[in-house]
């Protein structure tokens, strides 16, 4: 029995619901040596900012119990370089390309959205709103529903492309933020970004990361992510991309049951470069073993 894995997300048709999480896959160059990137549902590029960014000081990563901390600091070559070198490269995979963008002001988000207008191969824009808003005293856009709404509206006003907003879990009430971005025009939401954490070397008494704190990812955050996807799924009616510690197909299934239409894989790519292919195959097997024919038969089907 054939299984239908295709889903529609913010108007984009994906042949399967599995994609990389932004920042864990670059533009796919490194991974293309391990598998056919064209087999993925979509490709999500590493966050691009208007101007190039050096990123944070090393050490930038540290392993923790069942996870890892990172503070890369959005190192990237800037939008101009991205459009000239990375985007043309990603186009050859012939799958939808989701461009993840970030800025330190509303104007920067707006500018990038304008610059992406009419560019061939961009299927959707994902807003990384975990960055600090310089004009609002450095509070992350995603940490306040007012700021999240503003940044989404600024992007919405400047693009006709499908708009995905990636939510940060470092908030008291993520449903409230989700509601705000959807009312401002988001076509989909992705969650969760990393949880802010810290780790200290007890031999040197120094933080493990030069940046002191970093984003926690990996299996450690999965239950938090599943809970947040489930809460947001109760609140808004746009598709959700579930992210957070997915290592296996079974992990991904949990997210579908909680209400995600698609999933993004991050840290697992570092452990096993072919993790996403294993997950796609595993989802297909899970469905056919249970006599299910369509991935949509799982979405939001948690029995309460």
């Amino acid at each position: 029995m054939s299984v239908n894995l295709s889903v529609t997300l913010a108007g984009i048709k994906l042949k399967n619901p599995v994609m990389p999480a932004s920042g864990t896959f670059g533009a796919g160059r490194e991974f293309s040596e391990f598998f056919d990137v064209g087999r993925l549902g979509a490709i999500v590029a590493k966050t691009v900012t208007l101007k190039p960014r050096e990123g944070n000081m090393p050490p930038r990563i540290c392993e923790t119990t069942s996870g890892m901390l990172n503070s890369i600091g959005l190192q990237n070559e800037g939008l101009e370089y991205f459009l000239k070198h990375d985007l043309p490269y990603m186009r050859k995979f012939k799958i939808p390309i989701i461009v993840n963008i970030a800025g330190n002001t509303l104007e920067e988000y707006a500018q990038i959205c304008r610059d992406l207008k009419g560019i061939e191969g961009v299927s959707a824009i994902e807003l990384n709103i975990s960055c600090p808003n310089i004009k609002a005293g450095g509070i992350a856009f995603g940490a306040s529903s007012r700021l999240a709404e503003q940044v989404t509206a600024a992007a919405r006003y400047n693009t006709d492309l499908p708009l995905i907003v990636k939510l940060t879990p470092n908030v008291y009430n993520i449903s409230k933020i989700a509601r705000a971005v959807v009312s401002a025009g988001a076509d989909a939401v992705s969650l969760i970004n990393t949880l802010v954490g810290m780790s200290i070397d007890i031999n040197t008494f120094k933080p493990q990361l030069a940046n002191y704190t970093g984003g926690l990812s990996g299996p450690a955050i999965k239950p938090v992510a599943v809970r947040m996807v489930w809460e947001v799924a109760q609140t808004v009616n746009v598709p959700i991309i579930g992210i957070g510690g997915i290592m296996t197909a079974e992990d991904a299934i949990e997210f579908f049951l909680a209400g995600a239409t698609a999933v993004a894989i991050g840290t697992a790519n570092f452990i096993n470069p072919t993790a996403m292919i294993d997950i796609i195959n595993g989802i297909e097997r899970f469905l056919s073993e249970r006599g299910l024919t369509d991935i949509r038969q799982l979405v939001g089907k948690v029995r309460l």
């Binding site: 490194e30 050490p59 392993e63 990172n70």
Partner: peptide
């Protein structure tokens, strides 16, 4: 350096 992916994707092992 501490490394995650080892293949140049994660940008974690900068020197």
């Amino acid at each position: 350096a501490k490394m995650a992916c080892g293949i140049g994707a994660c940008l974690g092992c900068t020197y």
